[in-house]
Design a protein around this nucleic acid. Structure first.
Lengths: 195, 195
DNA sequence: GCCCGACTAAAACGATCGCTCTATTCAGAG
DNA sequence: CTCTGAATAGAGCGATCGTTTTAGTCGGGC
């Protein structure tokens, strides 16, 4: 099936932001990469570059949400689930040549002071992922406060470990973080949920 | 005392990169912020923008190394030491209005594919910090492998939690990460070093 | 006095930025 | 068929990018 022009723009933008950030990605580069023209881009996104980026970040956020859900649902034990997440991330990162990082982190860092919509979308993405992890932990019987703190820590550590892995061009930081996070989760001594 | 022009350039660049990234910071903006002129900048840094950024990142790296050393040395118990780090970071972040993040993370993310010197400097900074934490743990009697994995995890989590804190404009993510990291460190059951 | 290197100052370069504008193509409604 | 509006195409706008170039200032050695 052939993808629509709009979709090609969003997907290409997502990948470009992921690799070179929001500021570093030009509208004309997006046009070239997505096989669209400037006219098409401004037709679908009258809000200009930021509107394109917002759509791209939302797309990336959904994509990572899917990966997270998949990894979390695939393992009953929460510690194993977290470990599975890091393994998935590490594999994707290695396959991309350590280049395809987290577009949300990249875009968020560049628009921190701006109070733009882009900034808000990044915040929503992070909080959504955290909620995903928290719900998993709650479902496993973790007390509310522990689940909350653990979830934010897991998401933060995943982000940071991904950057570290990219910089060092090695999956070790991600895998190490995964093992340590799993240990941390297990330290609460909460078993996997019964059926 | 009056600071030299060169130093003003480096310090201003460090702060600008910290707030808006490498790509988002222009040479002319650096000139304006540091009360220097383009001529001065290119006189001290014939390598241009990247050379200025390299010096700025090195400067920031030393600064954060000092903060880390200070926090680590201030507490004998390694878990408390990690907690102290997050508290320090959270305080600085809040005081800056959630704007002064980690310039290394920002610069690293934007130059990932480029194999530039900037990229290398960022990697060196991260590894230096990790070594600092690792040595602290080793000094507390942690086995080598645990110390290594813990150290990379701590640094990664600090980075990620800082970004999360900035995006949410709250110190909670940093403090939560600190508490969880402390718990993780304690889970190894290694006491503080004897005299 | 003069000169020379270090440093400052600013004009100007080509390239690229995000964006606007006009023109054109094209499918479907009437 | 004509008409219409969505979609595509690309020239061109002013602004800014990083950089180069040229000129000027200033202090200390001869």
């Amino acid at each position: 099936m052939e993808t629509s022009t709009r979709d090609r723009i969003v997907v290409a933008t997502a990948r470009l932001i992921q690799r070179q950030g929001y500021v570093g990605t030009g509208i004309k580069q997006i046009a070239a990469e997505s096989q669209a023209t400037l006219g098409s881009i401004y037709h679908f996104f009258p809000g200009g570059k930021e509107a394109v980026a917002v759509a791209a970040i939302r797309y990336s956020a959904r994509e990572f949400t899917a990966l997270l859900e998949d990894a979390l649902d695939g393992e009953a034990d929460p510690a194993e689930a977290v470990l599975a997440c890091t393994r998935r991330l590490a594999a994707e990162l290695r396959e991309s040549g350590w280049v395809d990082g987290c577009p949300v982190t990249a875009a968020a860092l560049e628009t921190l002071g701006t109070a733009s919509e882009l900034q808000q979308v990044c915040a929503d993405a992070l909080n959504g992922w955290e909620r995903l992890v928290r719900d998993k932990l709650l479902g496993c019987g973790f007390p509310a406060e522990a689940a909350h703190e653990l979830a934010t820590t897991v998401i933060s550590a995943l982000e940071g470990a991904e950057v570290t892995a990219q910089v060092n061009r090695s999956e070790e930081p991600l895998l190490a973080a995964g093992r340590q996070l799993a240990r941390l989760v297990r330290s609460y001594g909460v078993g996997t949920p019964g059926r």
